[in-house]
Design a protein around this nucleic acid. Structure first.
Length: 423
RNA sequence: GGAGAGAUGGCAGAGUGGUCGAUUGCAUCGGUCUUGAAAACCGACGUACUGAGAGGUACCGGGGGUUCGAAUCCCUCUCUCUCCGCCA
C-alpha cells in the first residue's frame, strides 16, 4: 500500500508514475485525497466531542467524591447528548477508513524512474547476456525426454500420486535436486544470508501481510478446516517474521535465505509452457529476503543481483538479465529484474529468478518499521528474489549439458552430487 | 479429541469501576563519576491519528455490551499455555 500522506503531497507525481504501470490513477487518487480530507475533518469533530465527554465524566467523579450528588446527576444528563453524536461520527470514521483502505489496495506500487516504458514482456530491456549457448552435433533432447531416458523424473507417477504438475524425482534426479538445494543455501550463507527454515503452511494474516491475499487467493492451496494456506514462496513466511515489528537501524539490512517447497495452483495456465518442469504445482526454491533502510535498498538490490548472477556463472549456464518494463512488473514491485537461462532443446529463455525491490509498499501493509538513528520510526524497504528456483535450472542443466552418452554435471555441483555425469 | 488456566508496553510482571496510557524490575539510550571500563547515582524511554504548537483522541488479544466513566464487570470470537488421550 502507498501512504495516504505521500499521495496527498505528491498527487501529480503519483499519477504520472502510475501511468508507467498502465494504471490510470487520476480518479482513484482524487477520491483517496478527498476521503482522507473527510477523515481528518471527521476526526477533529469526533476528538473534540470525546474530549468534552471525557472532561465531564472526570468532573462527575470529582463531584461524587465531594458528595455533591445533585450536581453530579445534572452532569450525567448532559453527557447523554454527546453519546448519540459520538456514535454517528465514529461510524462515519469507520466507513471512511474502510473506503480509503479499499481504494489504496487497488493502487499498485510506483515504479522507479529507471523502469523502462512498455506494455508487455516484449518491452523488457535486456541488461546483459552472458555465457555461450551450446551447439550440438545431434538433435538435443528436451528435458522431459532426457528425464525419461536416464530415469530421473517420473511425471506419470506424480499424476498417480497427486496430479499433473507434481513430478516424482528418482535416483540421480532426486540427488541432483538435493545437491542444488545445498549448493544454493551454501552460496547464500557465504554471501551473508542467515538460513531460515520456516513453516510451509501459513495463516491468513501472513497471506495478507505479503499481499497474496486477497488479490491472489485462487493461486494458493487452502486447507479450509484450519484456514491455512500452502505457501507459494518462502517470501511469505520469511517476510512475515517482520510483520508488526519495529527494528532498530543497527540491525539493517537483514539478510535471510530459506529453502522451501512452493505450492502454486497455477489456475488458468495451459499449453506448451506447462510441459515437463516448466510449470509445476509443487517445486523447490531458495529465496533471499532483505529488510533494509530506504537509503540503502538500492545498493541491497544490486547486491542481490550479483548474488544470483554468481550462481548462474558457477552453474555455467547461459543467462540474461532483464529489466522489467512498467507493464510487465508485478503490482507490488518498484523495480524488478528477471534472470533467464537458455534451454537448448526448447530453444527459449526460461525465467529462473525475479529480484524485486518493493520499497515501502509491502512494509506499509506489513507494518514493518525501524527506528532510525535519530529515534524516528519509519517504514522499512523490503526486497526479495529467487536464488534460485530449481525446476527450470534442472531443465536447463539437463538440456545444455547433454552429450550422446550422458549429462555432464557442472564442476561447482560435483561435490554436492557425488557424481560428475548422469548416464 | 477431553479438562483447566491465561492473553497488559522490547521482555518480566503489578493493577479487579474514577488523575491508569498504566506501579515496578530488566533491557535500551543520555548524563554524572572514572585514565578507561564496570558498579553506583540522575534522567529519558510504547504505537497510531490529529494539530503550526500547546495540546487532543484512540489503543491493556479482536469484536460487541453495561456505565456519566472500563485494563478492571458481562457476552462473544481468536490465540497461547498446562494436564490427559492420540501420534512422528
Amino acid at each position: 500500500m502507498l501512504l495516504t500522506k505521500f499521495i496527498t503531497e505528491n498527487k501529480e507525481e503519483v499519477i504520472r508514475r502510475l501511468a508507467k504501470k498502465h494504471f490510470d490513477g487520476k480518479e482513484i487518487i482524487e477520491k483517496i485525497i478527498d476521503l482522507d480530507l473527510q477523515r481528518r475533518t471527521t476526526q477533529k469533530e469526533l476528538d473534540a466531542l470525546l474530549a468534552k465527554a471525557n472532561q465531564l465524566s472526570k468532573s462527575i467523579g470529582a463531584l461524587m467524591q465531594a458528595g455533591k450528588k445533585e450536581e453530579a446527576q445534572a452532569a450525567k444528563q448532559e453527557t447523554a447528548k454527546y453519546k448519540e453524536e459520538t456514535k454517528v461520527l465514529s461510524a462515519k470514521m469507520d466507513e471512511i477508513e474502510f473506503l480509503v483502505r479499499e481504494l489504496l489496495l487497488q493502487v499498485p506500487n510506483l515504479p522507479q524512474d529507471c523502469v523502462p516504458e512498455g506494455k508487455s514482456a516484449e518491452d523488457n530491456v535486456i541488461e546483459k547476456s552472458e555465457g555461450s549457448i551450446p551447439e550440438f552435433s545431434f538433435e538435443p533432447l528436451a528435458h522431459w525426454d532426457l528425464a525419461k531416458k536416464y530415469d530421473l523424473i517420473d511425471f506419470e507417477l506424480g499424476v498417480k500420486i497427486s496430479g499433473a504438475g507434481f513430478p516424482v524425482y528418482k535416483g540421480k534426479g532426486a540427488q541432483l535436486q538435493r545437491a542444488l538445494i545445498n549448493f544454493f543455501l551454501d552460496e547464500a550463507r557465504k554471501n551473508g544470508y542467515q538460513e531460515i527454515m520456516p513453516p510451509t503452511v501459513v495463516n491468513a494474516a501472513s497471506g495478507y501481510g505479503t499481499g497474496q491475499l486477497p488479490d491472489k487467493e485462487g493461486q494458493m492451496y487452502h486447507c479450509p478446516i484450519d484456514d491455512l494456506y500452502l505457501i507459494p514462496t518462502a517470501e511469505v513466511p520469511v517476510t512475515n517474521i517482520y510483520r508488526d515489528v519495529i527494528l532498530s537501524e543497527k540491525e539493517l539490512p537483514i539478510k535471510n535465505c530459506a529453502y522451501t517447497q512452493c505450492f502454486r495452483r497455477e489456475a488458468g495456465s495451459y499449453g506448451k509452457d506447462v510441459r515437463g518442469l516448466n510449470r509445476l504445482h509443487e517445486f523447490s526454491k531458495i529465496e533471499i529476503v532483505r529488510i533494509d533502510t530506504p537509503e540503502h535498498s538500492k545498493v541491497s538490490h544490486l547486491e542481490m543481483l550479483d548474488h544470483v548472477e554468481g550462481l548462474l556463472k558457477k552453474l555455467e549456464l547461459p543467462y540474461r538479465i532483464l529489466r522489467l518494463c512498467g507493464g510487465d512488473m508485478s503490482f507490488t514491485a518498484a523495480l524488478c529484474f528477471d534472470f533467464e537461462v537458455f534451454s537448448s532443446a526448447q530453444k527459449r529463455w526460461l525465467e529462473v529468478s525475479s529480484v524485486s525491490n518493493f520499497e515501502s509498499y509491502q512494509a506499509n501493509r506489513l507494518k514493518c518499521r525501524y527506528k532510525n538513528l535519530e529515534g524516528k520510526t519509519e517504514l522499512c524497504h523490503t526486497l526479495n528474489g529467487s536464488a534460485l528456483a530449481l525446476p527450470r535450472i534442472f531443465a536447463a542443466l539437463l538440456e545444455n549439458n547433454q552429450t550422446e552418452n550422458g549429462i555432464k554435471i557442472p564442476k561447482a555441483l560435483v561435490p554436492y552430487c557425488g557424481f560428475d555425469e548422469i548416464n
